[in-house]
Design a binder for these strands. Structure first.
Lengths: 190, 190
DNA sequence: GTCTATAACGGGATAGAC
DNA sequence: GTCTATCCCGTTATAGAC
């Protein structure tokens, strides 16, 4: 059995993913963690403090998992493709991206910072991969790595939005296929 | 001065945009509309009812405004470009897209339906434009209109996410520039 | 149609016993 | 470290006077 703070953080993480920060009450966290009121206020100063710990961990996990993915593959297009086609629980949405729609997360720098850093890192990392592909002649010289990286990340985040609206992962898969089609045609000599 | 139901709907709309459905209380709506408790429960059966009216209107407005935009321009790429570059209050996010992150909107078909319909229509409309461009030889035969349309809409929705995370519209503009660059290179004979 | 009063419940936190 | 009790306030209504 995990420690009490551990259970609290994990419960908060899952609730943040499902309901966001404004939509999650301390009571709900306690119920899910099967922990008493007192324990929570012993280990954390309150909802915000626990929220910061939970968001930090979610952001860290995403970064580590994604870095692994970029480290293992070969060509630039192949690595971006692997990133886009990575298995995802599409209808649940992105646990980091969904926080950008939460008014209290956005209003509080301690809560927002991990979200900001995650996307900044992600865009930079993908831009790096794309730049390598351009230097290596795999992609056209006209391709702007930063802009293309932003488009790739945005397609994923927007794909989640479309899938949730439709209650179907189809639009997500279409969007990914769409950007991959455009990227492929952008190969140096096609 | 607008009628009381009108003021209530408009207040609800702005609060849904800023704080989402779970984050918005009837009391907050009343304060913003400068309307009494009794009036609201006279004109609407409750929060949900008012929410449905507000979401419907926001969805309708978006559809009408976007249709105008597609009707006025010329070539397929030009029209998609105009759509992507349309003036937007980026940091506020998309008033329709943000609702996909609200657990109570997603759990209630009456609240979710307008959101679903808006994106379904939007994707279909853009796919139509792209298909015209393909028939007319403006775009490659290999381009899939539905997939590309999904990618275009997703880029915008994801662009909002990135911009909000960064508290800067820069990533949004980059993502739009990125997808436009890819689309341009996808012209039939470039 | 609009007002105030009231209610039942939950949110978010503190207090102090154990 | 964890528990229960308590507090104050906000949420989402309903009731009935005006």
């Amino acid at each position: 059995m995990a420690t009490t703070p551990e259970r609290l953080i994990e419960s908060m993480r899952s609730l943040l993913w499902e309901r966001g920060y404004v939509g999650t009450s301390p009571k709900a966290v306690l119920r899910r963690a099967d922990v008493g009121q007192g324990s929570m206020y012993h280990h954390f100063s309150g909802k915000r403090d626990l929220g910061v710990a939970a968001i930090r961990r979610t952001a860290d996990e995403m970064r580590v998992g994604t870095e692994e993915l970029f480290a293992t593959h070969g060509g630039a297009l192949e690595r971006v493709r692997a990133y886009l086609l990575r298995e995802r629980d599409v209808l649940r949405g992105c646990p980091v991206g969904r926080l950008t729609q939460d008014p209290e997360v956005m209003a509080d720098d301690a809560l927002r910072a991990p979200v900001d850093e995650t996307f900044a890192w992600l865009r930079a990392r993908i831009a790096e991969v794309l730049a390598e592909g351009r230097e290596g002649g795999e992609l056209r010289a006209a391709m702007d790595p930063e802009e293309t990286a932003a488009a790739v990340v945005a397609t994923l985040q927007g794909g989640y939005v479309l899938a949730r609206a439709a209650r179907s992962r189809a639009p997500f898969d279409q969007a990914v296929a769409g950007i991959l089609g455009l990227l492929k045609a952008h190969g140096a000599q096609d």
